[in-house]
Simulated assay, not measured.
Amino acid sequence: MPKVEIHPTWFDNATVFCDGKPLCTVGSTKKEVQVDIWLGNHPFYNTTSDIIDSEGRVERFMKKYGLNSRN
């Protein structure tokens, strides 16, 4: 038999907030969940920014392992 009264209280409709605005409801052990980043304001998922290789990581990797990037 499982032990009684060891699990936290489960809230089926916990509200998720970002910047003070409610986003959605989820199941959680907290009544309210605060998030800093979500799909709507993350630069990767919206069109406000481009993914660029500003530090030359790809070129550095290719040079380090002697690979030709044109293959």
Rank of each mutant, 00 (worst) to 15 (best):
residue 30 K to G: 01
residue 63 K to Y: 04
residue 5 E to G: 00
residue 64 K to P: 04
residue 31 K to A: 02
residue 59 E to R: 14
residue 53 D to P: 01
residue 35 V to F: 01
residue 56 G to L: 13
residue 51 I to D: 01
residue 53 D to E: 01
residue 47 T to P: 00
residue 55 E to W: 03
residue 69 S to C: 14
residue 62 M to E: 12
residue 18 C to M: 06
residue 68 N to G: 09
residue 36 D to L: 09
residue 38 W to N: 04
residue 66 G to P: 08
residue 11 F to N: 03
residue 11 F to Y: 12
residue 29 T to I: 08
residue 67 L to Q: 12
residue 49 S to T: 08
residue 71 N to A: 04
residue 13 N to T: 13
residue 17 F to R: 06
residue 34 Q to C: 06
residue 30 K to P: 01
residue 35 V to W: 03
residue 61 F to P: 05
residue 51 I to Y: 02
residue 36 D to F: 06
residue 55 E to G: 07
residue 42 H to Q: 06
residue 50 D to P: 03
residue 20 G to K: 11
residue 40 G to C: 03
residue 15 T to A: 15
residue 48 T to R: 13
residue 26 V to H: 13
residue 37 I to M: 03
residue 13 N to R: 15
residue 56 G to D: 13
residue 63 K to L: 00
residue 18 C to G: 03
residue 9 T to A: 15
residue 34 Q to Y: 15
residue 60 R to W: 12
residue 48 T to I: 06
residue 14 A to H: 03
residue 65 Y to W: 09
residue 7 H to C: 10
residue 28 S to P: 02
residue 10 W to E: 10
residue 24 C to W: 03
residue 63 K to R: 03
residue 50 D to L: 10
residue 69 S to P: 15
residue 55 E to A: 08
residue 56 G to K: 13
residue 45 Y to D: 08
residue 57 R to P: 09
residue 56 G to F: 13
residue 4 V to Q: 05
residue 44 F to P: 02
residue 60 R to Y: 14
residue 14 A to K: 01
residue 65 Y to E: 09
residue 63 K to S: 05
residue 54 S to C: 07
residue 19 D to K: 14
residue 5 E to L: 02
residue 38 W to T: 08
residue 52 I to L: 13
residue 3 K to Y: 07
residue 10 W to K: 09
residue 43 P to E: 11
residue 58 V to L: 12
residue 13 N to C: 07
residue 18 C to K: 10
residue 27 G to A: 14
residue 5 E to Y: 04
residue 53 D to K: 03
residue 60 R to S: 07
residue 71 N to G: 03
residue 29 T to D: 10
residue 26 V to P: 10
residue 17 F to D: 08
residue 28 S to L: 04
residue 24 C to Q: 06
residue 66 G to A: 06
residue 19 D to G: 11
residue 8 P to R: 05
residue 28 S to C: 11
residue 62 M to A: 15
residue 50 D to E: 14
residue 66 G to C: 02
residue 33 V to E: 15
residue 68 N to K: 07
residue 51 I to A: 00
residue 9 T to Y: 12
residue 42 H to A: 06
residue 4 V to L: 05
residue 9 T to N: 14
residue 71 N to Q: 13
residue 4 V to M: 03
residue 68 N to R: 15
residue 34 Q to T: 12
residue 57 R to D: 05
residue 37 I to A: 04
residue 39 L to T: 04
residue 15 T to C: 09
residue 45 Y to I: 10
residue 60 R to Q: 09
residue 33 V to H: 05
residue 1 M to K: 14
residue 12 D to H: 00
residue 19 D to F: 14
residue 44 F to K: 01
residue 54 S to Y: 11
residue 62 M to I: 07
residue 3 K to R: 07
